[in-house]
Design a protein around this nucleic acid. Structure first.
Length: 293
DNA sequence: AGGTCGTCCTGTAGGC
DNA sequence: TGCCTACAGGACGACC
């Protein structure tokens, strides 16, 4: 499910319920998600105040007063919902269909406010881990991550440099979290379309003289910025699983130009092409062969 | 060493 | 209706 815009949407939804509040009770309803829970997982959470809720790439990071950090990844199908002290998931919405399916509620946090934060993940590719902040920089899960696509260090020169010696496709390079951290299949397809670049293009060909229509890296960085910012504004994309923490859907899927649009007309105004789909590194790529070069 | 592929897991959609 | 297959927003680890 979740790429950077969805994770950021979740972070903003969890923030009012968690930041400044204390976890009075933490429950795991099975022994593992993607990995077994640490044996001291619950003990290191209960009684801890959440001093801040951040995000790195597709990871959520809850800072605890103890000096630990709770690292959370949503995998493919993870979602959080917040239930307030009165038992409602959102003002006026306590009967969302999603809330009736509790079979995959795997973790719950009861906060000092009386609110509950519940993690649901049918496929269980998600995971949580408590790490001491002092060794966060050595954490293998975070160590190899590339720059944040919306951060200052991510620019055309940096992206071109990261792709320069790659022998793989531009699509695969952008999905590689070591190159840039936070993009997934949807937003890579959408960004390549918006930059008019072919997903098949060799990553190394991204570099070119800056300025003018051949500034491929510049166009791509701008396209990535635009699509991520617009998606965050829309609360992410809801295809199947993604919900905001209130249970509401994101609505960026209505703005897709290629993803999930196989056989439909290209949305570039002057283009008469049709959106095609093919498999690249085991994942579906959607693109317009007429206007993406 | 970088790149590719299979794999983890459940749910759903589509074909017959 | 029911059974089967294919596929899904991620990313690790084994393999070449």
């Amino acid at each position: 499910m979740p790429e950077l815009p969805e994770v950021e949407t979740v972070r903003r939804g969890l923030q009012p319920a968690m930041e400044g509040a204390t976890i009075v009770r933490a429950e795991t309803r099975r022994k593992d998600l993607r990995f077994p829970f640490q044996t001291d997982f619950v003990a290191r959470l209960e009684g801890q105040t959440v001093t801040g809720l951040g995000r790195r790439a597709k990871y959520l990071l809850a800072d605890l007063a103890s000096g630990d950090v709770l690292l959370m990844h949503l995998g493919m199908s993870g979602s959080f919902r917040v239930i307030d002290a009165a038992g409602a998931t959102a003002p006026g919405d306590c009967h969302h269909p999603r809330n009736e399916d509790r079979a995959h509620d795997h973790v719950s946090f009861t906060m000092s406010s009386g609110a509950s934060v519940i993690f649901n993940d049918p496929r269980r590719f998600g995971y949580m881990k408590v790490i001491a902040r002092t060794v966060l920089n050595d954490e293998p899960l975070l160590k190899g991550l590339g720059p944040e696509p919306l951060g200052n260090e991510f620019d055309a020169a940096m992206l071109a440099r990261a792709c320069r010696d790659k022998k793989t496709s531009l699509k695969a390079a952008l999905l590689d979290q070591r190159v840039v951290a936070g993009l997934g299949n949807i937003y890579v397809c959408e960004a390549l379309f918006r930059a008019h670049l072919s997903p098949r293009r060799l990553a190394a060909t991204l570099a070119s003289k800056t300025g003018g229509p051949a500034d491929r890296a510049g166009r791509l960085v701008e396209a990535i910025h635009d699509v991520l910012n617009q998606a965050i504004k829309a609360g992410g994309s809801s295809l199947r699983d993604h919900r905001q923490t209130t249970g509401e859907l994101g609505y960026f899927q209505h703005s897709f130009r290629v993803y999930d649009r196989e056989g439909e007309k290209c949305r570039t105004p002057t283009c008469r092409g049709t959106v095609k789909r093919f498999t690249q590194n085991g994942r579906s790529t959607f693109w317009c062969p007429v206007c993406q070069k």
